[in-house]
Nucleic acid binder design. Structure first.
Lengths: 184, 184
DNA sequence: GTCTATAGGAAGATAGAC
DNA sequence: GTCTATCTTCCTATAGAC
């Protein structure tokens, strides 16, 4: 036959990974995967113990790589941890883009909701403004960083009052964008 | 009676908002909301035209505020847009924390999946390493910013090759953390 | 190994009693 | 206005034929 068992497994994982990254885990049904692969739901469930098992097999390498980074950093004190942490984290994210997208693309999935019409376009223009309306790729990257950074900090518990948090966030975002405040 | 119509509507919105922010939109059923409010699904659907209508009413103020910022920034050229963009964005996120959480907390919902066991704890330790293992709140904020920034950039289309993107990301992340590379 | 058929359940939404 | 009961649809997962 054209595809052996393990080849079929890999094909299922490949399709599932792509669909999960686009429509989210919950937003993707076995039907969707089966349709794309060109087989039945039952065939999927012969090769995997369930939808969860597919996700688990998909994410395990990335989680293991994170665990390795975790161990590596545990041995480093204070300042010496910063650079390895940054490099390790960046490498991890870039290496497992697809897997990270599975986590994060529940957001674009939500952004397709009618209630959020136009938000994507406004975000693009916001990034443009944050980048100082230049075509410089590095400014664009820095602007995207701010776009991702602020919501995470804003929705996470932080040991700061609201006014203080606002001031710190604005200052550090401007710093990231190389627009440090020089006013008195 | 104890609660009038509009009071009931507000209570439904309040409960829905909280549940959406914790378990995500798709992860929260009308049953869940009704149970928490202490009424039936039918009662919910008497006051709202459906689950989507609840979400829409919940997110509309935040989307409108974003639209206002969008208009305000459209009139500003180049560099002059950066600071208002940063301040406007930070204010927006902090003012609509709950709504932003509804978008972003599809992720923590996923992080509860067995395949991702331990990832939250490892993330906490990663933030600690990124912050240089200090108790300084600003360093902690900067570390959280990097944690949020890198995945967004890594999963977004950027006009850079992989090696270049890695280099830019590492450099700017270190810059955000005040650990700029001073090596030759 | 892969299929069809179906069980079994949960979701959103509706109908009609009160 | 709010309820119970029900409808429809979609989901995951299983059983058994081929």
């Amino acid at each position: 036959m054209a595809r052996n068992s393990s080849g079929f497994r890999r094909e299922i994982l490949e399709v599932a990974s792509r669909l999960f990254a686009v429509t989210g885990f919950k937003g993707t049904s076995l039907q969707d995967i089966a349709g794309e692969v060109g087989c039945s739901k039952a065939a999927l469930l012969y090769h995997f113990d369930g939808k969860d098992a597919i996700l688990t097999e998909l994410l395990t390498p990335a989680v293991e790589a994170l665990a390795e980074l975790d161990v590596r950093l545990a041995g480093l004190d204070g300042d010496t941890a910063v650079r390895p942490a940054v490099e390790g984290f960046v490498d991890l994210v870039l290496r497992f883009r697809r897997e990270v997208k599975i986590l994060y693309d529940e957001i674009p999935e939500m952004l397709r909701h009618p209630a959020l019409a136009g938000v994507l376009e406004m975000s693009d223009r916001l990034v443009d403004a944050l980048a100082g309306r230049t075509a410089d790729p590095e400014a664009h990257v820095a602007a995207l960083m701010v776009l991702g950074a602020v919501p995470v900090v804003g929705t996470q518990p932080v040991p700061l009052g609201d006014d203080e948090l606002r001031a710190v966030l604005v200052r550090r975002a401007l710093h990231t964008l190389d627009h440090d405040d020089t006013r008195p």
